[in-house]
């Protein structure tokens, strides 16, 4: 098996996908992957294949829903969009992520200061 190009924590990937859909509106898998790479400026190397099981998981939890539609090049593509439950989840995750980063910043900053 080929080694993964960049480890993305599962919880993080969920948050990234939800945030992307919130900002960009309905997108297909490739679109999400492109956007992630674009925003992260290639700092975060997403293995595109791992995106699809993650999308399925989010859909099973009812946070996103999918619909077939036509892409820009007129190809048949599956579009994902955020549901109401997904929006709530995004809020929750954002909050907890912020708490976490604040904590980490304090912790690391404190260590540095000492």
């Amino acid at each position: 098996m080929a080694p993964p190009r960049g480890e993305v924590l599962q919880g993080t990937l969920d948050l990234i996908v939800l945030q992307t859909l919130e900002v960009m509106g309905p997108l297909h898998g490739y679109g999400i992957a492109q956007r992630v790479q674009q925003v992260s400026r290639d700092l975060l190397k997403l293995n595109q294949g791992t995106l699809y099981p993650a999308l399925l998981r989010l859909e099973q939890r009812g946070w996103i829903c999918s619909k077939w539609g036509a892409s820009e090049n007129n190809r048949k593509a599956k579009y994902y969009s955020l549901t109401r439950a997904g929006q709530k989840q995004l809020l929750r995750e954002t909050e907890s992520w912020e708490r976490m980063t604040a904590l980490m910043a304090r912790l690391l900053g404190g260590t540095e200061g000492a």
Binding site: G49, T50, P53, L56, R57
Partner: peptide
């Protein structure tokens, strides 16, 4: 290449589906 293993992805996907 960019995508990674197509069959592996399918298998993972099926496992979850």
């Amino acid at each position: 290449r960019e995508f990674g293993g197509v069959e592996q992805t399918k298998e993972l996907y099926r496992d979850r589906r």
